[in-house]
Amino acid sequence: MTERSTVGASAVQADSQNQAALRDRIAEALYTHDHPGHLVPLNKTGMGAAYRDTADAVLAVLPEPVGRVAAWRAAADELDSISDQFDGGGCLCGDCALCTWTEAARHLRREAVEFQKADAADTGRPA
């Protein structure tokens, strides 16, 4: 497995965890809407599964989320792909448009790594 595909797998796992958390928040919001001023939390009512099913129906009509890290990496890959089409030799002058695009791709990848590290520190999950 390449470095990029390993990173992609991590992004997919993080996105599925985010999706489950989003489903739970939607279920809680629906329950709160149906029962204003409720005293019993959703997870204690026995209705959690029904509200999560309804939340899944809501999620089914929403567009697929694109994680920030995955989007930055996809943009970096696209910059590399365009650069490779025009420069198979790997220009290293540091001043031309191709070198600028290459540096922009590197920057996006660094930002993705830094964002993952900061997110891991905030959430306690590994980067």
Score class of each variant (00 low, 15 high):
Met1Thr: 11
Met1Phe: 10
Thr2Val: 07
Thr2Lys: 10
Glu3Phe: 10
Glu3Asp: 12
Ser5Tyr: 06
Val7Glu: 12
Gly8Gln: 13
Gly8Met: 12
Ala9Gln: 13
Ala9Pro: 04
Ser10Tyr: 09
Ala11Phe: 01
Ala14Met: 11
Ala14Val: 06
Ala14Cys: 13
Asp15His: 00
Ser16Phe: 04
Ser16Ile: 12
Gln17His: 11
Gln19Thr: 13
Ala21Arg: 07
Ala21Thr: 03
Leu22Lys: 11
Arg23Tyr: 00
Arg23Thr: 00
Arg23Val: 00
Ala29Pro: 05
Ala29Ile: 02
Ala29Arg: 13
Leu30Thr: 06
Leu30Phe: 05
Leu30Gln: 12
Tyr31Glu: 00
Tyr31Phe: 01
Tyr31Met: 02
Thr32Asn: 09
Thr32Pro: 01
Thr32Val: 10
His33Cys: 14
His33Gly: 14
His33Leu: 15
Asp34Gly: 07
Asp34Leu: 10
Asp34Trp: 01
Leu39Met: 15
Leu39Val: 15
Val40Pro: 06
Val40Ser: 12
Pro41Ile: 02
Leu42Asn: 00
Leu42Thr: 01
Thr45Arg: 03
Thr45Gly: 02
Met47Ile: 06
Ala49Lys: 08
Tyr51Glu: 05
Arg52Phe: 07
Ala55Gln: 09
Ala55Asn: 09
Asp56Cys: 03
Leu59Gly: 14
Ala60Tyr: 04
Pro63Gly: 12
Val66Pro: 07
Arg68Glu: 00
Arg68Leu: 03
Val69His: 02
Ala70Glu: 01
Ala71Gln: 13
Trp72Val: 01
Trp72Ala: 13
Trp72Tyr: 13
Arg73Ala: 06
Asp77Leu: 04
Asp77Lys: 02
Asp77Cys: 07
Leu79Arg: 02
Leu79Val: 07
Ser83Trp: 02
Asp84Asn: 12
Asp84Met: 09
Phe86Ser: 03
Asp87Thr: 03
Asp87Pro: 05
Gly90Ile: 10
Cys91Met: 12
Cys93Arg: 06
Gly94Gln: 13
Asp95Ile: 14
Asp95Leu: 15
Asp95Lys: 15
Glu103Ile: 05
Arg109Met: 00
Arg109Val: 01
Glu111Gly: 11
Phe115Tyr: 09
Phe115Ser: 00
Gln116Leu: 07
Gln116Arg: 11
Lys117Gly: 06
Ala120Lys: 03
Asp122Gln: 10
Asp122Asn: 09
Gly124Thr: 08
Gly124Pro: 06
Arg125Trp: 04
Arg125Ala: 09
Pro126Gly: 03
Ala127Thr: 00
